[in-house]
Design a binder for these strands. Structure first.
Lengths: 189, 189
DNA sequence: TTCAAACGTTGCGGTAGAGCAACATTCGTT
DNA sequence: AACGAATGTTGCTCTACCGCAACGTTTGAA
């Protein structure tokens, strides 16, 4: 149940099994069906999650009702509507399982309690923030500076999982193009 | 010299003057001319900075040589090429003073030493990362989901300093449009 | 195993913004 | 204060991407 999470802590910190066992029970396992909405826009995000199996998508809707996907969390990673979790304001983001998934869920309160009391969790949170930030930066420069075709090629090279496991509709909303355009781009590759 | 920085720590943490005095000498004052490049792409970023006065811009060049601006740091805030500072890889970002500025500069080594040994600096770094992340998210959704005109209106409302203090060229590269387009958008407001 | 609903593809026309050129304006330097 | 260089404006044309419509394909629930 906690193997992947332990592995994650091992990679990022100097944790030992005893220490890990002292807090891992705060993470509650949960099996979730495909397409299940974990958080809706307007709700305040009160949990952090770690994906044991499957994939969680974080997205928003703009005024025209289009879906804009910000991030996919696959197995072995943390993911949540961080902005709402941090600010404790109603989320503008949705969280959705895009595959049948097995998650480890920890409440916001428990999570920040651990961040403040367990140095290894503090380190992991720092790493999560740093990586989330770096990923965002690369995405900003990609959206601002590259053509849709270049972004697709980048995705094929660096995130092939996304292309092989997820639907075109969802991939298009991640690349910032319509499904029509994605379909045409794929044809001209 | 350190008033603004102390104020910043006061807002974010439970610091007291004695504690602050014990580490603030790690931040070295530096006066910098307008347009001075503080970091070039290709160099590894080895410092963090706090702006006492003026404005620092962080931007990159895409393959066509266009400037894409990621962020402006005004007085009273931290700013640096965070990605390179964290990863210790050559930066793809430039840092440039866009106004005559007065900075407080701390080396990467000293900064992370303080993060690891002074709880209040750890808190400040966490806050910096959280805010940097949240700002990035809003920018991604803005770039992906809004028209150039909507982004300009957003900027007028939430970041009027940028419009009043900086050049159109630089504002355009922040909004993700050409200076031509920005000029036309302003005309039709 | 079937069949409706969701998803993917493609032709066609529309639109936001790019990019050149030519001119106007502002700004930094002496 | 004067002048050259950088910046800003605007007409014109061009292109990447959008978005509808119509049709083909996959999927998952009974």
């Amino acid at each position: 149940m906690y193997e992947l999470l332990y592995q994650y802590f091992q990679e990022k910190t100097d944790i030992d099994p005893k220490r890990f066992d002292s807090f891992c029970h705060y993470f509650k396992p949960k099996k979730v069906k495909r397409n299940k909405i974990l958080l809706s826009a307007g709700d305040v995000c009160t949990f952090n999650l770690f994906v044991n199996e499957g994939c969680v998508r974080i997205y928003t809707l703009n005024e025209e009702g289009q879906e804009l996907t910000r991030y996919f969390t696959f197995e072995g990673k943390f993911g949540t509507a961080l902005t709402s979790l941090i600010e404790q304001q109603p989320s503008f983001e949705y969280m959705q399982c895009v595959e049948k998934s097995e998650l480890l869920i920890i409440s916001r309160q428990d999570f920040f309690h651990l961040v403040d009391t367990v140095p290894q969790v503090n380190d992991v949170y720092r790493d999560v923030l740093e990586m989330a930030y770096i990923t965002s930066q690369k995405r900003i420069y990609g959206l601002q500076g590259q053509s849709a075709l270049d972004r697709l090629k980048w995705l094929m090279h660096y995130q092939p999982r996304i292309l092989s496991r997820l639907s075109n509709k969802v991939i298009a909303s991640y690349l910032g193009v319509t499904p029509y355009t994605l379909s045409r781009l794929k044809a001209e590759l």
